[in-house]
Amino acid sequence: MPAVDAPAFWDAALCPYVVILGAAPPGIPATSRFDPACWPQPAHRYSGPEGTHLVLGGGASFYRVWLRGARRDGPLAAIVPFDAMTATRLAALSDFDRWRRGASAPAAVPRPTAYQAQRLDLLLSILDLRQAARATSHAIASRLVYPRLATGRGAVWKASPERRRTQRLIREAEALAAGGYRALLSGRAVRQK
């Protein structure tokens, strides 16, 4: 199923792009009500004991919201934890607020470049192929990394720079799966090779 049809719900403790909303303190004007049913794009929703998680938006811009146990009929306030990711959390909140108001201002949260997105897609495809078929580095090179290149066999393959690059990509994909993805979620730059 494509990610657009079933986007992931992220843990706000790990991902600063999740906007946390809760009941506003007394005295906050009622204009801060939140009704996702009135928003233009469909919301993907997950409700659990800790509240409701929503994915709003569409296309290249998704906004993840955690409606933390708040009543929907009362005013809401943003909850921004003070941690190592506070600056990214504030930028994500600012982006969300601009989108909520219908503004088309440029995003404050950095998005992956086209190259970075393509590279991440390649790394995820490598992981999928390794997991589904326990594919060799030669099979990964032939199918994903160098689909239009005859990669050779035996000693030719073992001595090739294509093999070394493919092995580096496999190690990078496995490191991403083993926890490196958290650097992406937290907004920290990840070295692109």
Rank of each mutant, 00 (worst) to 15 (best):
W10A: 00
D11N: 12
V80H: 01
S160T: 03
A173Y: 07
S125L: 13
L124F: 04
A150F: 11
H138S: 08
A189P: 09
L120H: 04
T113K: 07
A175C: 11
L90R: 07
R143D: 04
F34M: 06
D35H: 14
L184P: 05
Y46H: 15
V55I: 12
F82Q: 14
L184A: 06
R101C: 12
V109M: 06
I170R: 04
G27R: 00
R33H: 14
S125F: 07
A84N: 09
V4W: 09
S125Y: 11
R98Q: 13
P75M: 02
C15L: 02
P161Y: 02
A117I: 00
A43Q: 03
Y17R: 15
R100Y: 15
A155D: 12
T136E: 03
G180C: 07
A12F: 04
Q118V: 05
P147N: 09
A3C: 12
D11G: 05
Y181I: 06
G58Y: 02
P16Y: 04
Y46R: 15
Y17V: 10
C38H: 13
A132F: 10
R119L: 12
I20M: 05
A30K: 14
W157R: 03
T31S: 12
G69S: 13
L123F: 07
L169D: 05
R164N: 04
R98M: 08
F96V: 09
R148T: 14
G48A: 15
F82H: 14
L124E: 09
L54T: 01
R100T: 10
G48H: 02
R182G: 01
A78W: 08
Y115Q: 10
L176D: 03
R130K: 15
W99A: 08
V4N: 08
T86V: 10
V55R: 02
R182M: 05
